[in-house]
Write a protein that binds this DNA or RNA. Sequence first.
DNA 1: TCAATCGTAACCACGAGAGTTACGTATTGT
DNA 2: ACAATACGTAACTCTCGTGGTTACGATTGA
Lengths: 138, 138
Amino acid sequence: MKRNSRFSLALHVLGHMARKPDERLSSQQLAAFNQTNPVVVRRTLGLLREQGIVSSERGHAGGWQLSQDPAEITLAAVYDALGERFLRPDPVGEDNPPHCAIERKIGSTLSDALSEAEQVLVRRLREVTIAAIAAEMT
Amino acid sequence: MKRNSRFSLALHVLGHMARKPDERLSSQQLAAFNQTNPVVVRRTLGLLREQGIVSSERGHAGGWQLSQDPAEITLAAVYDALGERFLRPDPVGEDNPPHCAIERKIGSTLSDALSEAEQVLVRRLREVTIAAIAAEMT
DNA sequence: TCAATCGTAACCACGAGAGTTACGTATTGT
DNA sequence: ACAATACGTAACTCTCGTGGTTACGATTGA
């Protein structure tokens, strides 16, 4: 099992979809690109559909299609749509209230540092679009 | 079970140790601060010992002590000593060589973005010392 | 009607990491 | 010496997150 594959799975299939904007690709086809399962694809793309990035059609000629211009879809949008958090926060659990001042201090310090790092990450992801990814395809 | 507790566990016990530089604190005592287990403490502090941050003594009056001035121990040093990677890379697994160009592109793009974000994180962690953490204790 | 396809629920498989037990070894106080 | 204390470590369990899989209902088009 590949861990943390949601994001790269999404980017990969979006890249392929950007190459064939007029076709509706089935979960089965998209799954093949990642050597994974149609259900996993549906799960993942379902989150993107909620954000209007892709659309799906049921039935005989159904499948998935981009809802936006691939040049307008940033990796940050995908990251957000998936609810990804590459930074593992959890500096201070919600259920374990700090017992001493040091724990609060640690929690706030780590929170600040992680937030800043993630801002940098997202800023970078905003600079790359699906179109740029698709352009690399052979 | 608290996840990702190694780092905050380490910072917490180091903070307490910094308050009592002359005492040797047992794993048992340190574990109590975090409501965890002595073995977990030994495991974690063992990594810090390898980097010369703390020292341990066995036997009757044994325990743990800081090996460095708490004002010299940065959170980044602890982060490194623990081998923590708050950013989950794994953009392209080592065992699954990219099948098409898009996968390589995704892998390198994510790698770059994650690396940059982590540099920012570490830079921040370098600005905070154990002494600063300990100063917050009540 | 029938085949293709998404939408979901439900469950399994696997791995990471903390929690726990157990035991060996080292050190110290008496 | 000897008992008590404490680390070092192995081995196991528990839990959680996540992907994989199966199953089935709903929808669409020929």
